[in-house]
Design a protein around this nucleic acid. Structure first.
Lengths: 198, 198
DNA sequence: ATTTTTATCGACGGTGTGTAGACTTCTTTG
DNA sequence: CAAAGAAGTCTACACACCGTCGATAAAAAT
């Protein structure tokens, strides 16, 4: 029921909306500096320029803050989801483009995406956000796959999780994301070829 | 340096080794009943039949307990790693067998494996344990792949992470692991076929 | 049998959390 | 513009869990 933002405050263009943004920005910054565990409610509040108790006016808990942060990022991603599956391109081209786009997303939002993955296990709301995003992506890719071979949602989903996981670790280890994209695209394409022949 | 078990106690067939096992068993049981977050040092100790402070004689922290538990499971898995890559079988057969074996492992140890995945982000020692296991598996599979196509360690690793992730979610959602194994095997095999043709 | 090691416990101090209640500052509107 | 009310902030408190210290009991070793 209750969304990430606790229901205390009515929505309007109030002054405190700036605070809300400031808090999320602070959280994102601390996420990079200290990591999830070390980051405390107090440190977030201080960096946002308010007191610990004041933060509780906007968010119910540290997890609520993180949830809102993930939501902000995931929403921003969905916004620019330039569903680039133009019908004319070949499946291989669409795949390559998609995976490259994914690489860009991880480059841009790696910090928050890693947090989303890490928190997905313990926080149902974040899990929903994240699996939702991946599932949506999988649905789109099933469509693409269906052009070249017998469509199999389960396979598309598995390949999506492969992409997620591979980029996750690449991001954690600071690997070259272009190389990662290359590898993923290869597997996607090879799978299509290998499935078509049957 | 220090292993999972804090260095306080000298190793022998002492009485307290039973306690150590009891603690790990208790932790595993609570892992299933309460989950990682809710499970407290006190609850583990109580279930093991000792006091909270007594537990600290054996382990330095809750994380140390979890680490030891993961290690116990991962070691047990490595033990029975019946490296079934008999040279005579076809790549497809080896893959199918391997993935089925993976399904068995998740059926048997799903609880701890999920915990390992969940904790890998925040606990370096567990991360090492887990990535080590997956990497070892990836190395073996690279070998298998190399029989049928140009070997690519990066691809084998990506496919391993796919397998891990897919089984993880299947385990979380209580999905049918046989179906999951089927899907994964299909992708492995299709990838080989799709790569050989190039 | 006494000395040493292993094991256990009660009690303390610390850190971080979430909440309650008083107080201040905006904003609305008669 | 003043009073009422809403929005925002702060100090103080109570709580839960953690990790450690020092005293004590049980087990092994000599």
């Amino acid at each position: 029921m209750a969304a990430a933002t606790s229901g205390k405050r009515r929505h309007g263009p109030r002054k405190g909306d700036l605070r809300e943004k400031a808090i999320l920005d602070a959280a994102e910054e601390l996420l990079g500096r200290d990591g999830i565990e070390l980051m405390t409610v107090e440190s977030i509040a201080n960096r946002a320029g308010i007191s610990r108790a004041a933060l509780y006016f906007y968010f119910g808990s540290k997890l609520d803050v993180l949830t809102a942060l993930v939501k902000r990022t995931v929403d921003a991603m969905a916004e620019q989801a330039d569903v680039a599956q133009a019908a004319e391109s070949s499946a291989d081209d669409v795949i390559t483009a998609s995976v490259r786009h994914t690489a860009d997303l991880w480059r841009e939002h790696g910090l928050v995406l890693r947090a989303a993955v890490d928190l997905a296990s313990g926080a149902p709301e974040i899990r929903g956000l994240w699996t939702g995003t991946v599932t949506r992506y999988a649905a789109a890719m099933t469509e693409v796959l269906s052009r070249a071979s017998r469509p199999d949602p389960a396979m598309a989903e598995a390949l999506c999780w492969m992409t997620e996981r591979t980029f996750y670790w690449a991001s954690v280890n600071g690997d070259d994301l272009d190389r990662t994209a290359e590898t993923c695209a290869q597997i996607w394409c090879a799978t299509i070829r290998g499935t078509t022949d049957v």
